Each structure stands twice: as structure tokens, then as C-alpha cells.
Deep mutational scan, measured.
Amino acid sequence: EQIEAIAKFDYMGRSPRELSFKKGASLLLYHRASEDWWEGRHNGVDGLIPHQYIVVQD
């Protein structure tokens, strides 16, 4: 089940696996990879999304 999230802040990925996005961006989350990271998608690209930078939608 995919979960929708909105970016709270701009984020610049620090490795090829991390996604970069702007504040207000819509993100799709697949699952929680760790306490700090989600596996997800932004603009058709899959990668890691930092939990602290997003708001998960109910």
C-alpha cells in the first residue's frame, strides 16, 4: 500500500539512492526502510526519503 506524503523542507540527496525534492512536493512512500528513512518515489524516480523532511498524509 502506497502512502502519500508532502515535503516539509527542501532536501538535496547526499547519495545516488537519496531523492532530492522541494518543500511542498508530493511524495509516494512504499515502506519504512528504517527509523529515519522511507523507500519511496518522486517524479517517477525511486529512492530513499528522509522521515524528518516529510509529513505523512492520513
Score class of each variant (00 low, 15 high):
R41N: 09
Q2P: 06
E39T: 07
S34H: 05
Y11K: 03
I54F: 09
E35W: 06
H51W: 05
A33P: 08
A25I: 04
Y11R: 05
S15K: 11
R14T: 06
P16C: 07
A5P: 01
I6E: 15
F9Q: 13
W37V: 07
H51C: 13
I54K: 01
S34D: 11
K8W: 03
H31D: 14
I6C: 04
P50F: 04
H51M: 06
Q57I: 15
L29Q: 01
Q57R: 12
D36I: 10
D36N: 10
Y30G: 07
E4Q: 08
F21A: 00
G13I: 04
N43L: 13
D58F: 15
Q2D: 15
F21H: 01
S15P: 08
W37Y: 10
F9W: 05
K8Y: 15
E18W: 02
I54D: 02
D10F: 03
G44V: 04
D10H: 09
G44L: 11
Y11E: 00
L27Q: 00
Y30K: 14
N43K: 15
K22E: 07
K23M: 06
M12E: 14
Q2F: 15
P16R: 11
A7I: 01
Y53C: 12
I6R: 08
D36A: 10
P50K: 14
E39V: 07
R41V: 12
Q2R: 13
H42C: 14
S34E: 11
S34C: 10
P50G: 12
K23Y: 08
Q52L: 08
V45P: 02
W37A: 04
K23I: 07
D46H: 12
L27F: 06
Q2C: 15
A7W: 00
F21I: 02
F9A: 14
N43Q: 09
I54H: 02
R32T: 04
A7R: 00
E4G: 08
Q2K: 15
A25N: 15
W38I: 01
R32F: 00
V45W: 07
E35D: 11
G40M: 00
R41S: 13
D36T: 08
G13M: 06
R14I: 09
D58R: 04
V45R: 11
A33I: 06
A5Y: 03
Q57K: 04
S20Y: 02
F21Y: 02
